[in-house]
């Protein structure tokens, strides 16, 4: 199939960007979306042009590095799918596909479709951990964890930190990301001693980074490749309110 792509091109953080039109020919339906971009880039390099910069690494939907807004939807319209796992069979000949970077003030564009997501790392730095030096741990069976709690923790822990939640949120909020980590660690007995302080410092850091406020629109969970539930946001709010009291 042949496609028309409209891609956000921006050479550096300070320069203005614009949507640029490209044509790609003979796209195989079995290609992944990123492989389709690889083909475009090979052509651009040979023509002496700047290839489209985009982040990617594992290409199997787990590292969280890739992410672009495709036709107005973070990671494209396939549910529970990262951009690297989106395949071209979901497009048809003659389609016009727009591709944009995540848009959020705390995620400034570095180049083209590459954004700086270090704000997420700083939110984790603020408290997204259990303080336990290597070698200080008791036997793993010392504290049994009810299966329900372990499952809740796991569901939240599947977050890959891709940032699609922020990209899709009309408010540019990072509540799903932050809530997921607070829920993951707070659900486990090992994470409980720091539960209150963790919620407080992480939420404060999230606000400091300039993310928007949550209005529970549900847009985040709808595009989340791992289907993280809005419950984690309620959990974050509960822990935060408790800590603020």
């Amino acid at each position: 199939m042949n496609l028309t792509l409209k891609i956000w091109r921006q050479h550096s953080p300070d320069e203005p960007g614009q949507m640029v039109k490209y044509h790609v020919k003979d796209v195989s339906p079995d290609m992944s979306f990123l492989e389709m971009l690889d083909v475009l880039n090979e052509g651009l390099i040979l023509a002496g042009d700047d290839p489209v910069a985009f982040d990617h690494d594992c290409r199997e939907g787990i590292c969280g590095m890739c992410g672009m807004v495709i036709n107005g939807v973070a990671h494209g319209e396939q549910k529970a799918t990262t951009t690297c796992q989106l395949h071209m069979r979901h497009f048809k000949d003659g389609d016009v596909v727009t591709i944009e970077p995540w848009r959020a003030a705390p995620f400034p564009v570095i180049k083209d479709l590459v954004v700086d997501r270090s704000a997420f790392d700083r939110i984790i730095q603020a408290g997204g951990f259990v303080s336990v030096p290597a070698g200080a741990a008791p036997d793993a069976h010392a504290v049994p964890v009810p299966k329900g709690d372990a499952d809740d923790a796991f569901d939240a822990a599947t977050c890959i930190g891709c940032g699609a939640c922020v990209a899709a949120c009309p408010n540019g909020s990072a509540s799903l990301f932050t809530g997921a980590k607070i829920t993951h660690l707070g659900s486990l007995p090992q994470g409980r001693p720091e539960r209150a302080s963790r919620a407080k410092t992480m939420v404060e850091q999230m606000d400091l980074e300039g993310f928007g406020g949550c209005t529970n629109t549900g847009e985040c969970t709808a595009v989340c490749p791992k289907g993280i539930s809005l419950d984690v946001i309620a959990r974050m709010n509960a822990d935060f309110l408790k800590a603020s009291r």
Binding site: V132, A137, P138, D139, A150, A157, L185, Q190, G191
Partner: peptide
């Protein structure tokens, strides 16, 4: 032991 203490689910 270490991983469990860190909250690995």
């Amino acid at each position: 032991d270490q991983a469990v203490a860190q909250g690995v689910p």
